[in-house]
Structure formats: C-alpha cells, structure tokens
Design a protein around this nucleic acid. Structure first.
Lengths: 348, 348
DNA sequence: CGGGCCAGCGTTACCGCTAACAAATCGCAC
DNA sequence: GTGCGATTTGTTAGCGGTAACGCTGGCCCG
C-alpha cells in the first residue's frame, strides 16, 4: 500500500504542472526559465497548465538544484535614510526574482581599517558578490579587500568609475549641467554652488557639469561663488552662511545634494529671506527630504531603485559561469524635478 | 571508476563536516539546529569541525528539506523613508537568519479597494505570512483580505492592538508621558500638543500619555492647546501656525512625530522665534530627520529594526507547525533622546 | 536477570528543481 | 525511401539538508 508521502507540502510543483500539461517536468522547467528549444504549441500548453494551477516555482529548490549564487552582500555606510530605503526596495525586488538573499552589513567607521574589517565580515559569511552603494563605492580599502578575497563587486552611483569595473550610475555631469541651465534659463546670473564631499567622484562630476553649463551660456565662471560642502546638513549650513555673507549675494544656490539644499533653505529663512522669491535653492538626488520641507525642492532625481536592481542583475550575470557578460557599465536616465524652491531672480 | 560528481560546487557541506568530526550528517544537522539529544562531547567535536572547515549551512537546501516558509510579505505604504529603511534593515537580518525571502509590496492608495487590491497581490504570490508596519497595521481592508485568505499577519507599532492579534510595539502611552514629564521638569507649564492622524491608534495613545502626565503633575489640562495633525510635514505647519497664533503662546510644542516637529521648527524660525530659547519643540520616532535639522530634535526613539526582527520571528513561530507559540504580543523598550531642541522656558 | 524505556546516533528517503545525458522526432537533401 | 544532423523531449541523478524512523546500548525496575 502506497501511503501519501508524509512530507508532502501540498503545494503545486513542476510535477503537477507536467502532468496537467501532459509533458515531463523538465519541459516545464524549460518553459519557466528562458524556454529555449521548446515548440510553441508545447510552451502554450505548459503556460496554460501553470495558469490553471496557479503554479509558482519554489525558489529554494531552484537555487539548490541550479547551484546559483544565494548570498549577495550589500555594504552600506550612512547614506541618507531615504536613499537607503529606495535602494533596498530595488535590491530586494531583484533579489527575490533571482532567488538570492541579500546580506546587509553596516560599515560605520571612517577609518580604512574599520572599513576593511566590515568587509571581511562578508568574506567570512560566504557572500558571492557585493553591491557597493555610495559612498562606499569609492572606498579603496573596501574594494581592495574584496579583490583580495576574489569576490566580485558592483559600484553604484560613482561619478567616474574606474575603467573596466562593474558599475551602475547616472550621468552626474549632464544632470548638473541641466540643472544649471534651468537656473540660467530662469534668469539667474549669479549662482552659488555648494560642492559635495571631495572624496566622492560624483562631487567633481557635478561641479564639472555646473562649470560647463555656466561657460556654455557665456557667463563668467569666476563670478560664481563656490563653497565646499560635505554632503551633510551641517556642512550645508556653513557653506550657505558663507554664500549669503558675500557682499554681492547670489540669487540662486545649487547644492550638490538635497540635505545641503535643505540646510540652505533653513539658513535663508532664519535670515528673513523668502524662498524662492528672494533666493532660489536647488538640490540633487530627490530624496524624501525634498518633499518634507517647505517649499518643496527642485532637484535631480536618480532612479535609485532601478539602479539597485541593475546592480544586482549585473552582479549575477558576472557570477553566472555561462558565457561572457554583455556589459560592465550601465548609465541610467536621470530626471529634472521642478518644484517650488526656485523662481526667477528678484527684480532689482 | 568513480568520477568526482560533475555538479559539485566545491563548497563545504554537512557531509564534509560529518567526515571531519567522525559522525553522521544527521548529527551535524542536529548540532547546528537546536541540538537536542546530542552528547556534549559529540557536540564539541562537531563544532570544532565546523569551525575548522568554516562551514556555513546552505539556506536554500535547508528550507527545501525542512519545508519551511520561504516567502514573507511586507506591505508598506508611505511611512517616512527613514522608518522604512530601518525597518527593512531589521527585517532583512531576521529573514536571512531564517532563510526566508522578503517580498515587498507597495500599497499606494488610500481607498480600501486599492489597499485590498495590493493585498491580493500577496495572496497570488503565495506568501505565507505578512508583516504590516504602520500605518497599514491599522487598515481594516488589508487585514480582512489576509484573514479571508488565511494568511497570518503581524502588526507593528500599533498603539492599541486588537486582543489576540500578533503584534510588536512600544508603549506609546508611557513614552508620550515620559516626554511630557521631561518638558514639565524643565519648567514648561503651557505645552502645545499636535496630535497624530486619528486613523492610527498610536495617535490616541500618545495623546493619552500626554494628558496623563499633565494631570499627574497637577497642571490644568484644559489650559494646554491641542491641534489636530496628520503626521505629515504639511499638517504640522498648519497646526503649529495655529498654536503660535494663540494670544497666550505655549512655551513648548510636543508634536506626535518628527515630521510635524520639524515643521514646527520651520514655522517658528520664519516667525523669528529661536528654538529652543523662545520655544521648545519635541517630536516622536527619532527618524533621521531628527538629526538632519537644526537644532537637532529631542524625541522618542523606537527600536525600529528590532521591532521588525521581532515581528518576523513571531510570524515564523506562528507558521511553524510544532507546538504552540509562546507569545502573541511583544512590547519593546523605547528611549527618550534628549537633543538641542528643548530648553527651559524663557523668563518672563 | 529479563524486558521496557529512552538518550544518542545512523539510515533512508525524500524536499522541488535542474544539469547532463539519452532518446525520440523532425526536416531535408540525395 | 534513406541517412544524417538539428531540434525537441524524456530520463537519471543528484544539489545540501532534514523528517521520520531504526538501531544500539545503558539504566532501572520488577
């Protein structure tokens, strides 16, 4: 007497689908993945059976059988929370599709030794690849450690990634230039710029974009006041104070990220300047801060979730033994988001 | 002739550990999980072998063999990004430990029909349980849909969870009372309160805590101006304007979350009031906003990541067939975070 | 001193899926 | 028709781990 398998989970498996469609389990598997070398009629029968039974493949079994990568590391330091949450949403979506797990690790310290230490945590836990969102994508200690362990990595949102490395980014240069042109088109002729942290290449790229747009418009770059910031709210306060202390005040401020832009708006308000009537302020990144302030911020949106997804796919392609990977670099489209924080300069 | 298995992945398996320790694979498995009925000497030998080989179990194989839950849903609407990122960090850590995948689904709309629709997405994709962070934990349409499908859920951070439901939370009442007492201890006698969205029970609990502390201090509750807010930055502006328009202005404002507190600080600044010298402002949640503003916000910290972890563990316990689950409710500890946004009231 | 019980460990048989190989089928030129 | 390569489909053998059950030997009790 055959007793029903005591361990059956009652869920729909390939076998069930195969029986329903009158084919073998292997054929079902082929249809579900890629589906090479399956006759059209057969595929349709299988798809119909899948739909009928509401089958969804068991990802644990799949990655076990296929021997795929199952643990991908994500090393984060302290980007803005808004950035991180978007990033995680994208990465999680891609991870689930691929059936792999995301292993998070915080990298708190600033010192190379601490960073290397956090990285070694990954090596211990057998992650097969690592995603490096900013600003860690720029940290040599981390990359060296991963290279030494032979673990592939993808950098995300670097301004100027090293040749041949896996990376996903936007065109910081073009985005900053577009934003600058937007201000110029509005009539601003004296635009203050707050630079980002010099240890990140995107800072330089954004500044280059700013300069290029100024010069292209035939304006005098030397007349544009520039302050150094470090991407933090606090540094934005200092930089903005300096800009507004100038005898000839800028009519607009372009901060290299939203946090610093928010700081600039705060400083302006405390000085009794109205934004945007007296001073226009624009940022970069379109984090949630941009809409939880008043006035809401004109800024550049990065497709953060899409970038995370792209990074993970790229990494998995790299890890897949079969064939060579198509591309090692992806530049996604950015978008200029116009809100209420900028307006034509005040008439004088 | 035995050729080495062509599909071997070269990684360390239970078999390797078993051989090294001179026991069977099953014993290794027992040691790794729980480890009931294993002699101490044997356990040590196995642990030594594990350490020596640097073995780490394959979570795909584990969940396949054990037939464990592999997909846990996380339905989020739009809590603050800071909240979400912390929440995801905690949930991911727990998910990895348990070897299950997190399935995110955004629930955009406000209308019950849209919310139910988003929930049905989960039912389709065979998630075995769902975590409901605020404010979705309070949405009847979502919970009904899950109940109808027989999918267990855990609510997180509800103020007053329904009897018998799985939930993880902090004591909103006590936390709000503590914050209020802190203000009273500083010398404030006229404290304005901005309520949270009435569709969330935590709003009511926080308000109850505020009232209790006021009365316990022997102050006149009727003298405290209260405004309705909705947890949004925008609603905080309106509420704070109303409070500051009062003939007898409060010396402190207790906003039911950080976004509204940030709004209050902004309004005060635009009116030329200095925070905290002229007006103290405190918030609730300790999201990242609390430190990306100036002055930094005194607020209540929720252990968000820990709450997410607890929620996931609770859900998995519920799903595990063996035995009954210990607890259906967990109240984690909150913490009063004192920063720069409050000070004794101005002398008059 | 025999037998029942249980802690401790091994054996077997899978979980659900897919790589690799084998077999069947097809198309087509001669 | 026949032969042969290309395409489509089926078969087998695991991937790494664990549930269920079986076996062993020591302990206790009658």
């Amino acid at each position: 007497m055959i007793k029903p398998s005591r361990r059956s989970r009652g869920s729909i498996t390939v076998q069930d689908v195969a029986r329903e469609a009158g084919v073998s389990a292997m054929t079902v598997s082929r249809v579900v993945n890629g589906g090479t070398n399956v006759r059209e009629a057969t595929r349709e029968a299988v798809l119909a059976a899948i739909a009928k039974l509401n089958y969804s493949p068991n990802s644990a079994a799949r990655s076990l059988a296929a021997g795929e990568a199952t643990q991908i590391g994500l090393l984060y330091s302290n980007p803005s929370a808004a950035y991180l949450s978007q990033f995680l949403i994208g990465a999680l979506a891609a991870a689930r599709r691929a059936g792999c797990h995301l292993v998070l690790e915080a990298c708190e310290g600033e010192r190379p030794e601490e960073q290397a230490e956090a990285t070694r945590g990954f090596v211990q836990t057998h992650v097969q690849g690592v995603i490096l969102p900013p600003p860690l994508s720029e940290v040599g200690a981390v990359r060296d450690e991963l290279d030494a362990a032979g673990i592939p990595w993808v950098s995300v949102a670097m301004g100027l990634p090293p040749e041949g490395s896996l990376n996903v980014r936007i065109d910081d240069f073009a985005a900053a230039a577009a934003m600058t042109s937007h201000l110029i088109d509005m009539g601003h002729r004296r635009i203050g710029f707050i630079r980002g942290n010099p240890n990140q290449t995107s800072s330089a790229e954004r500044y280059r974009g700013f300069c290029a747009a100024i010069e292209e418009a035939g304006l005098d770059l030397a007349a544009m006041p520039v302050e150094q910031g470090y991407f933090t709210f606090r540094s934005g306060i200092v930089a903005c104070e300096a800009l507004l202390d100038l005898p000839e005040r800028p009519t607009a401020i372009f901060a290299s990220n939203d946090d610093m832009a928010a700081a600039a708006v705060g400083v302006a308000h405390r000085r009794g300047l109205h934004v945007p009537q007296d001073l226009s302020v624009v940022g970069f990144d379109d984090t949630s801060l941009a809409t939880t302030m008043w006035p809401e911020l004109t800024t550049v949106r990065q497709p953060i979730a899409a970038m995370a997804e792209a990074a993970l796919s790229m990494l998995l392609d790299e890890l897949r033994p079969r064939g060579q990977n198509a591309q090692a670099e992806q530049v996604l489209a950015h978008q200029l988001i116009v809100r209420e924080s900028c307006a034509p300069p005040p008439r004088r």
